[in-house]
C-alpha cells in the first residue's frame, strides 16, 4: 500500500513534468518556424529522424557503447570519489592532503583533460571513460567528505556503548547520513557524465554517439544532430528520473516521515 501511494505520487509528479516538456516542444516548434527548418529542424522532423536512427543497424551498438562508457566513468567517479571523500572525512590529515588535489582537478577545463587523455591513451574508448571519471569525481568527493564530516558523533557513541563494531556503525549510522549528501552529488554527476562522454567521443574520434554526431556534422545533417541530441538528453533524463530518483525515494523514505502530510513535493 505505501508502495502504491508512492507510485501514485511519482506518476503525478511525472505528469506535471510532462507538461513542462511539452511547453518546451512548443517553443522549439516556434523557433524552427521563425528560423526555418534547415537551421532548426522541427520537433516532428527530429522525431522522424530518431525513429529512423533507432531502427537503423548502428543504433544499438553506438548507444550501448556510449552507455557503457558513461556508466563506467560514472561508477569509477562515484566509487573512487566517494571512497576518497569518506576517508578524507574521517581523517583530517587525508582531508588536508586531498582537498587541494581535488580543487586542482576541478579547476582544470574538461577540454584539457580530453586532449591530455587522448594523447596518453590514443583515440580509444578509454578516453571518454577517463574524462567522465575526472569530470565527475570531485563532486562525489565533496559530497562524501561533507557527509562523513557532518555525521552524528553522538549516535556513534551510542552504538559504541551497545558494542556495535566499526563496520556495522559505518553501515547503519554513517552511510544513511552520507547518502543524503551523495544523491544530490550523483544527480549532478550523472548529467555531466553523459555530456562529457559524448564530447570526448566526438573529439577523440572514438565512435559512440559522439562519433555519430561528428559524422552528422561533416555531412551537415542537422536533423541527425538534433535527433542524437534528443537521444542523449533522454538517456540523461532516464538516468536521473528513472534510476537515481526512485532509488533515493526508496532508500530515504524515512525522510518523508514526520513532515506535514500535505507538504509532499
Amino acid at each position: 500500500m505505501p508502495r502504491l501511494g508512492w507510485l501514485g505520487r511519482y506518476l503525478w509528479g511525472g505528469w506535471a513534468s510532462a507538461t513542462g516538456i511539452f511547453c518546451l516542444f512548443a517553443l522549439w516548434q516556434f523557433g524552427s518556424e521563425v528560423y526555418g527548418g534547415f537551421v532548426l529542424p522541427t520537433p516532428l522532423r527530429t522525431f522522424a529522424e530518431i525513429a529512423t536512427i533507432v531502427q537503423g543497424p548502428v543504433f544499438r551498438d553506438v548507444a550501448a557503447q556510449t552507455c557503457m562508457r558513461t556508466f563506467l566513468g560514472f561508477a569509477l567517479a562515484a566509487g573512487l570519489g566517494g571512497l576518497a571523500g569518506a576517508v578524507a572525512g574521517y581523517s583530517v590529515a587525508a582531508m588536508r592532503l586531498l582537498k587541494p588535489v581535488v580543487a586542482v582537478i576541478l579547476s582544470v577545463p574538461q577540454i584539457s583533460w580530453i586532449i591530455l587523455v587522448m594523447i596518453w591513451f590514443g583515440a580509444t574508448g578509454t578516453t571518454p571513460v577517463i574524462t567522465v571519471t575526472v569530470a565527475a569525481l570531485p563532486i562525489s568527493f565533496a559530497g562524501a567528505l561533507e557527509g562523513v564530516a557532518t555525521r552524528d558523533r553522538s549516535l556513534d557513541a551510542m552504538a559504541r556503548v551497545y558494542g556495535v563494531g566499526p563496520l556495522r556503525r559505518f553501515a547503519t549510522i554513517t552511510v544513511p547520513h552520507l547518502l543524503s549528501y551523495l544523491f544530490p552529488a550523483w544527480t549532478i554527476t550523472a548529467g555531466t557524465a553523459w555530456k562529457v562522454a559524448v564530447m570526448a567521443e566526438l573529439l577523440a574520434n572514438a565512435g559512440g554517439i559522439g562519433g555519430e554526431l561528428a559524422t552528422a556534422r561533416t555531412m551537415f545533417d542537422i536533423p541527425q544532430v538534433t535527433a542524437w541530441t534528443v537521444i542523449v538528453a533522454t538517456f540523461a533524463l532516464i538516468t536521473d528520473y528513472g534510476i537515481l530518483h526512485p532509488l533515493r525515494e526508496s532508500l530515504e523514505s524515512w525522510r518523508r516521515a514526520g513532515q506535514p502530510r500535505d507538504a509532499a513535493p
Binding site: S154, L155, M158, V161, Y162, I173, P176, W254
Partner: peptide, 12 residues
C-alpha cells in the same frame, strides 16, 4: 546499556 539525555535514535 545506556540512556542518554537525548534519545539518540537512528532517524532512518
Amino acid at each position: 546499556a545506556m540512556v542518554f539525555q537525548e534519545p539518540r535514535l537512528l532517524p532512518w
